[in-house]
Design a protein around this nucleic acid. Structure first.
Lengths: 252, 252
DNA sequence: TTTCAGTATAAGTACGAACATAAGGGACGG
DNA sequence: CCGTCCCTTATGTTCGTACTTATACTGAAA
């Protein structure tokens, strides 16, 4: 007879869908320790009753958290808490082995080109914006501080209104999105990252000391603000023979 | 009044859920050119009526194909075909244990080869074990449930003592490490994942419908038990032209 | 003590219905 | 000719209900 969980109340009834509100509530309860990692959530039907929503809505909410890897479900058993809120701000630098992703202090991005571009075709599709939209396009090699040869080639696309953020910057030693956040006051809510294999083009190969057509890895990131608004889009190219992307999934 | 689309009939009523059958049907119709890339699918309500299923089931089916990147939907407009025909664009997102679990359940791994091998050289180094150690080596293609063509080639290395875990299994529909956990009673504490770009060898290319030397992605995972003991090592090869590895880092 | 069958549980699947909301198009007036 | 408003369309959200199936537990039989 667990009569202790009386704090299950939905708050703020704004325009966000109910199932997202439920998902956020569950996330808060998980982070807050009400549902510790490794334990089972109450059954869907119980949650539905306690929150006065339909089981279908609960399932949608749980589906969200399952997609993010926070929950996992098994028929006949229940829904298990797999991970606390994934704290990407720490993982961002933590999943780098050899400091490949340590943007903050150990690398330098040298902007060699900057221009306004209309994005279209594949690029527009990758960015998730309408073809024809204008962006400020910056590009250049990235060095380990003090190194002579770059280990990575960068491309960055910024909204035109953020022009003055990078106006006077030729060498960047911090994560660009922190500057964007500081300038706009808008917080980056989500980063969507994509990794794929590519052939290096002539320019990239030149920077990286490889030959055109050699194996490479392309790592792109979409920085989204509130309302899935694209604030920044960045692409990095690495030589395929030396680069590997490492992640550790621990179950605590 | 388009009275031409009379070929919308569901076949084989086996144990697979209805919404997956619908998803496969839609995929076939897309590949077959009935719904060309770039065009809009008929409205959900029309599809539901034509197939004599509920709109809810149609939405589940469409949801599957949206997850794979085959379809995209916009409110008030419709559902658009995004992927080129006969390109089953594999999108794989897994940044958690639960993600791997769900991934394995919507796919099938067919074991084609199984043998004892002594690992050495690069492989031993990647696995993090002494060269010369013996492992049970299984390999084969992986399919989306119901698909004809594999989207991935798998290799699995297991400790010899876990032989009976896969003894009678030819088609695997769950995450292998859960079987290992169940058999040994030892919980997987950590999964170390590595992604790199490769050229496909002849066998891999054959399975994936590509040519030898084509661009590919290699995704390896080390499943560690307590005390950093290697329980399982798995490698997956994907075609580089259609495969992308996605991660979402959200801050809410 | 072990094994097996039955039962309870909880997620999965599938139906139906209704309303909300975004997009696009067309009518209408300026 | 152009912008505004409204209506239609199609997906999104939310409720309700019922049944299926995998899993675990329990209790009886061997």
């Amino acid at each position: 007879m667990n009569g202790q969980d009386a704090e299950l109340v939905m708050t703020f009834e704004d325009g966000t869908p109910l199932y997202l509100q439920v998902a956020q509530l569950l996330q808060r309860l998980i982070d807050g320790g009400t549902y510790p990692v490794g334990t089972l959530l109450p059954p869907e039907s119980d949650l539905a009753q306690q929150l006065s929503v339909s089981r279908h809505t609960i399932r949608q909410a749980i589906g969200q958290l399952r997609q993010r890897g926070v929950l996992s479900a098994r028929k006949g058993v229940g829904t298990r808490v797999e991970a606390p809120e994934d704290d990407w701000r720490s993982r961002f630098s933590a999943n780098s082995r050899g400091g490949l992703f340590d943007f903050a202090r150990s690398t330098e991005l040298h902007f060699k080109h900057r221009q306004m571009t209309e994005v279209r075709g594949n690029l527009a599709a990758d960015m998730g914006v309408r073809p024809g939209r204008k962006f400020l396009h910056l590009s250049g090699p990235r060095y380990y501080s003090g190194d002579k040869n770059p280990f990575c080639v960068n491309e960055v696309f910024l909204e035109p209104r953020l022009k003055e953020v990078v106006e006077n910057i030729d060498i960047l030693r911090v994560a660009l999105f922190t500057l964007v956040e500081a300038s706009t006051g808008e917080r980056v809510k989500e980063i969507q990252q994509e990794i794929r294999a590519v052939h290096l083009d002539e320019v990239q190969a030149g920077y990286l000391g490889r030959n055109q057509g050699d194996l490479g890895m392309r790592l792109s990131r979409r920085y989204l603000g509130s309302g899935s608004r694209l604030l920044e889009y960045a692409v990095q190219y690495y030589p395929g023979d030396t680069f590997a992307y490492h992640t550790t999934l621990s179950s605590t």
